[in-house]
Design a protein around this nucleic acid. Structure first.
Lengths: 244, 244
DNA sequence: CGTTATCTTGACGTACATCAAATGTCGTGG
DNA sequence: CCACGACATTTGATGTACGTCAAGATAACG
């Protein structure tokens, strides 16, 4: 159901300019790299893309690359033998994938919308990090932040009610847009209800029902899909935090 | 309910020998530091301890130290306002705490058995890492491994049944002892059923019932507490993996 | 050896899952 | 532009795994 190699490679190995013009640079770990060092990155990397729905990292496969998303978004997930799925996160422009130290990838990645990325062979990364200590520092920061997010997600999965989970999910989406404004906000949900369910440890139906309930309670409004308007961010924040 | 400062400090700032004689050194990030550089660690660190049941890191408090466990074990957890608790992990000798980049700790830590540790001011760690790049590399490895473990735990909390969760927990305990032998193994559970429950997203009663069931099914034997004998590791591994 | 916390076991309740069907949405081709 | 089919979403009816409540049993402790 999921093995897939990339459709084609946009060979850009020797195009050092590519990095300096990259949309994602300001957001990604590459921002830790000085202009004059960019060629070291550019020569090691390959650019690729995956169409919506395509799996471009396979859990269990040999982990020979690190990925950096430059366009689009994707979902990361783990599977059980009978098909049960846990989505461990959604990633977008600037996000970094494949930190795992082990031999194989710990999760699969599938494009939500068409995704572009650049990837580095793991073999070269070790030497690359030695040459670019700022990048290593940045990686450590990224990993630490992800660890905090993972712990927050454990709290959600282990303790929270369906209502609190959905509220948490929506508020996390608001937070990633701007600094949690107190007024109404519009969030985009590029993933399906099924994806949200597998991320929150709920079923499609429960996600749908819970959203309907939040709507009828006046907390949110469902706009032209895939958008949702947060009508009462502060109240929703309280629900998400487990106060209600 | 939990604020607590350490009872006393075993002042050892100028004792550079302490590190080279440390029990935990081989297991911890300190193993990445050469003997000749140990004094850099020793001068920055403080040694402390916490009695069983004592909270020595408070979620939300200003995160001004990094911790390294040198003896004993502890549980890490997050709380919701109404007291619901998610234990995010158990740590032991050699484990490292406080990677969070933010201003405050993302979790609390409470000693299971009497704990000894050394801690480093966050302010000094930045310069310490610059002087000791091997330590930074090691930290990145540690963080990456924890990230993989966290994703595995999300799979557990989001997808697995009570039976699968408890089996996973037991097998993880076996794995940390030796390389998952195929014969019977003895595991020690220094935490209460309540702790296990809060770690697995279950109640005390469900943990107890599930253990009883695994016992009556012949998978495990309950020895003199706090020990459990794994009678059928391979079968339990399958249950943990979601095959049963 | 009493006191208290932890663990086990049972009876019952419930939040969410499952099953099922109606409704809505989108892409495709006539 | 509209008709059609495939799929996502919503909504309802029912089932169940696990939570809650309660009572003993066992172990830890001074």
């Amino acid at each position: 159901m999921s093995t897939s190699v990339l459709p084609f490679w946009l060979g850009a190995d020797r195009d050092a300019m590519r990095c300096s013009a990259c949309d994602a640079r300001a957001l990604s770990i590459c921002s830790a790299v000085e202009d004059c060092d960019l060629h070291k990155l550019a020569t090691a990397m390959q650019v690729g893309e995956a169409a919506a729905g395509q799996t471009f990292i396979d859990e269990g496969a040999t982990a020979d690359h690190f990925f950096n998303i430059t366009a689009g978004s994707a979902k990361l997930f783990k599977l059980l033998p009978d098909g049960r799925r846990q989505i461990t996160g959604f990633v977008g422009v600037g996000d970094f994938l494949g930190l795992a130290v082990s031999e194989s990838y710990a999760f699969s990645a599938e494009a939500l919308e068409s995704v572009r990325f650049c990837r580095f062979p793991r073999t070269r990364l070790r030497t690359l990090l030695n040459e670019l200590p700022a990048m290593e520092r940045r990686l450590l920061r990224v990993a630490s932040n992800e660890l905090v997010a993972a712990q927050e997600q454990m709290l959600l999965l282990g303790c929270k009610t369906a209502r609190e989970r959905v509220a948490s999910f929506l508020m996390a989406r608001v937070g990633r847009l701007r600094g949690g404004s107190l007024t109404a906000a519009l969030v985009t949900l590029p993933m399906t209800r099924g994806d949200i369910g597998d991320y929150l440890g709920l079923t499609i139906e429960t996600v749908s029902r819970t959203l309907s309930r939040l709507k009828s309670d006046g907390y949110i409004a469902i706009e032209a899909p895939p958008q949702i308007r947060i009508l009462q961010p502060q109240a929703l924040r309280k629900i998400a935090g487990g106060f209600a």
